[in-house]
Amino acid sequence: MSARSYGQYCGVATAVDLVGERWALLIVRDLLVGARRYSDLKEGLPRIPTNILSARLKELQAAGIVRRVPFAHGLIYTLTEFGQGLEDVILALGRWGFHDMGEPAEDDVITPDSMSMTFRTAFRPVSAETLPPTIYDTHLRDFSLRLEVDRAALHVTRLDGSDAESSPAGRPRLAFETGPSIHKLISGDLTPAEALRRREVAVLTGDANLLDRFATTFNLRPAA
C-alpha cells in the first residue's frame, strides 16, 4: 500500500489512489486527444509547475496509465490500454462539471485539447445518426478545430490555414467563429438564432441554418 493510499478495498478508492492527485486527470484528458510531447503537455496546461508535471507523468507511468515511447527525435507520452479506459470517466466528469462552470474568469484559458474534449463530451451520437454527415469548422480565439460528423461517429482535428478551405466532397460544411460563448450554445442557454443575433457566433461560410443541426448534434442539456 502506498503512503497516499486511502487503504480501502473499493474501486472508487483505488481509482482515486491512481488518478486523484491534482493535474492528473487533466493530463489524461489531453492524452485522450492524442500522444503528446512533454512540451505539448506543458503548453496545454500552462499553469502546471514543471516539477509537478514531471512527477505526475512518473506516477501515471508507474500506475500503468501512461507510457513514454520513442518518436522522431525525442519521446512522446501516450495512454496505455488501461489509461484509455478512463475515456468514459473523463467524458462523464466533463458533463457533470459543465453545468457548474458559470462564466469564464478573465484569466481562464481555453486550449485546443480542452475544447476537443468538450465537443466529444457534448456529442450526441443518437441525434447525429439521424442527420446527414456534416463538417463544422469552429474558429475559437487562437485556434480552429474541424468536427467531422458521420452519423454516430465524430472525428475532431486541428485546422491550419492550408486545410481550412478543404472538405470531403458531398458533405455540407459550416465554418463559424465564436469564443467562450460556444458553451452557451451547447448548453441550450442560447438558441442558434439568439447566438447569431447577439453576435456570439458569426458564420464565415456555409448555410447558417446548419447551426441548428450543430446545436442538435452537440448539446449538454440536462436529461429531462
Rank of each mutant, 00 (worst) to 15 (best):
S2M: 15
R4K: 13
S5C: 05
Y6F: 15
G7E: 03
G7I: 12
C10L: 02
V12N: 10
T14Q: 14
V16W: 11
D17A: 05
L18S: 04
L18D: 05
L18Q: 10
R22K: 15
L26V: 09
I27P: 04
R29M: 11
V33Q: 02
G34R: 08
A35F: 11
R36L: 13
R37D: 01
D40F: 09
L41A: 10
L41F: 14
K42D: 03
I48V: 15
I48Q: 08
P49T: 12
I52N: 04
S54T: 15
E59S: 13
E59H: 15
A63E: 08
G64L: 07
I65T: 08
I65M: 03
R67C: 04
P70A: 00
P70Q: 05
F71T: 07
L75E: 14
L75F: 15
Y77D: 06
L79T: 08
E81I: 12
F82T: 10
G83F: 11
G85L: 06
V89L: 13
L91D: 02
G94A: 05
G94Y: 06
W96M: 15
G97R: 10
G97S: 09
G102W: 08
A105Y: 08
V109M: 05
I110D: 02
I110W: 10
P112A: 01
M117Q: 09
T118P: 03
T118D: 04
T121L: 02
E129S: 04
T134N: 02
D137M: 04
D137R: 14
T138V: 15
T138K: 08
L140Q: 05
R146N: 00
L147P: 09
V149L: 02
R158S: 06
D160A: 03
G161F: 07
A164Q: 12
S166A: 09
A169E: 04
R171F: 10
R173D: 00
F176I: 02
F176G: 03
T178S: 13
P180G: 12
S181W: 11
S181L: 07
H183W: 15
H183Y: 14
K184A: 00
I186N: 03
I186W: 04
G188D: 07
P192Q: 06
A193K: 13
A193W: 04
A193D: 10
R197V: 03
E200K: 15
E200C: 13
V201S: 07
L204T: 10
L204Q: 06
G206M: 12
G206E: 03
D207Q: 07
A208R: 15
L210F: 07
L211K: 05
L211Y: 01
R213Q: 05
L220M: 11
P222W: 08
A224E: 06
A224C: 01
